[in-house]
C-alpha cells in the first residue's frame, strides 16, 4: 500500500506536526519505503490468531479509593511555558 502527498498532509495534521512543503516529498519517499517493507506482514497467515495486546499476563492491580493530592498548583505549572493564577494558558479557543 503506498501513500501520496495528501495522506502525508492528512496524517501530519492528525499528529499535529507541521510538515513543510520542502520536506514533504522526502518524507513521503521514506514513509513509502517503510510501509512497503512492513507490507511483508501481509504474507503471514494470521487466520484465527488473537491479537496480542500485552506480554503482561498477570491480573491488573487495583487501587483503593483514597485521595492524596501531593502537588500544589505551583509545582504542577512549574514547567509551563505560560501560566496565570494557577491556570495553564493557551491562545483563545473558540467553541
Amino acid at each position: 500500500m503506498s501513500i501520496d502527498n495528501s495522506i502525508v498532509r492528512k496524517v501530519g495534521k492528525l499528529a499535529k506536526i507541521k510538515i513543510k512543503e520542502s520536506e514533504e516529498n522526502k518524507l513521503l519517499d521514506e514513509l513509502n519505503n517503510i510501509l512497503g517493507w512492513v507490507d511483508e506482514l501481509k504474507k503471514v497467515d494470521t487466520e484465527g490468531v488473537e491479537p496480542m495486546l500485552s506480554v503482561f499476563n498477570e491480573s491488573m492491580n487495583m487501587r483503593e479509593d483514597k485521595s492524596d493530592s501531593k502537588f500544589s498548583n505551583n509545582l504542577i505549572t512549574k514547567n509551563s511555558p505560560e501560566k496565570k493564577a494557577g491556570f495553564f494558558v493557551v491562545p483563545k479557543v473558540v467553541e
Binding site: I76, K84, A85, G86, F87, F88, V89, V90, P91, K92, V93
Partner: peptide, 9 residues
Amino acid sequence: DIKNTLIDL
C-alpha cells in the same frame, strides 16, 4: 481572559 483560554485540570 480576552486573548486566552485558561486550563484547569
